[in-house]
Write a protein that binds this DNA or RNA. Sequence first.
DNA 1: TCTGGGGTCCTAGGACCC
DNA 2: TCTGGGGTCCTAGGACCC
Length: 424
Amino acid sequence: MPRLICHVDMDAFFVSVEELFDPSLKGKAVVVGGKADQRGVVSAASYEARRYGVHSALPLRTAAKLCPHAIFVEGHPERYRECSQKVFTVLNRFTPQVEMASIDEAYLDLTGTDRLHGPPLRTAHALHEAMKRETNLNCSLGLASSRLVAKVCSDQAKPNGVLWVLPGQEAPFLAPLDIRKIPGVGKVTEASLNSMGIHHVGDLARLDENFLRERFGRWGLALAGKAKGQDAGSWFDGEIGALEDPKSISHEHTFSEDVADRTELETVLVKLSEMVAKRLREHKLYSRTIQLKLRYRDFTTITRAHSLDHGTQFDGDLIAAVLDLLQRNWDGATPVRLLGVHAGSLKRNEGQMSLLDEPAAERLRSAFRAIDKIRDRFGVSSISLARSMQTNLREKTHENPYDLPGKAPQEKEESIPPARKPKN
DNA sequence: TCTGGGGTCCTAGGACCC
DNA sequence: TCTGGGGTCCTAGGACCC
């Protein structure tokens, strides 16, 4: 029996959520992502704004030129997460086999649920209506025998539609579509395929697998499978709904104007490190590879990594690694556009090489639990390790205060600013 | 046009070990 | 001595997705 996969994709999700909070936006050209003159790109555009050529990833300033009368609104990640949770709740009632693929889309495995919900189209329509009723949001649904076809399907069904591709009809459904409709085919692959005279999925499906493998390596094999609607390649395969740990956690910041001041760069790196470390602790994960990212004015971007001999989830370790990487890789003069801190090689435990004995490690963890609670209430910047405020001192004394992951808990001082109002 | 932020996966070279 | 082959780790960069 073929699988029955449903892909649910929320329509103009960020814009629709903003409309829930401000109904006056409805029916207007709305751009979510920031102010019209900011450095940044469009996160989402309403269908009205799209008519002027505005789309996500477009620079905000360009969007403003294309659609001068558009309303530009700041994004609200908390609102989107909250709505995403409601979406999940609705879906989860139809089957426990739900997997949120991102904040606004999900896969459901509906194989064998016809006795419970009826035939596929009836199930899909029930889901569609339940979503509208309970979240006030529109979505589009794709039904098919593979994730890949279901995803392409929901895209074809947009906006606010339902589309089912019957088993056996995958190839004829895909054949006339533009190659770009295949998830994983972006600008570069498209250009490359176009140069070979391949424009539609059907052209690709007719090609010899070996030819594609010679031309594109393993990616070529995956492509051949995709052209036939198979969940070929690694990540599309597998159970729906299996929860997995994240593989990396990162935060980055683009300055509104390029910065060449060391202290300012270090201050931002400390903050980014603290945010990453906090999320490592929330996930109960330890990272062994800390990476610094630098982007310059001309957009050239470098990443420099350092692997530790033990995993860590503590601010000081990340800060030490990242400041050291900056020291070694930044010339001290070139203006910086973006800074990033990335934690990779994530594990559920520290590994064998921990520098701390277990009681010390537990004292540290408990100190950080307290710190994280304060940060949850008052914001990340409300509390820092005393040392992390002394980036200047490090320069002057030529010693690195972060060499050890919190030599002892008493080294950390809580510093709560006098009158800082809690958010909300 | 002047390019965010959070991710995943893949490739490729060099080190290092057996 | 002029020369292997495989496996794994580390690092850097890039395509792609939402």
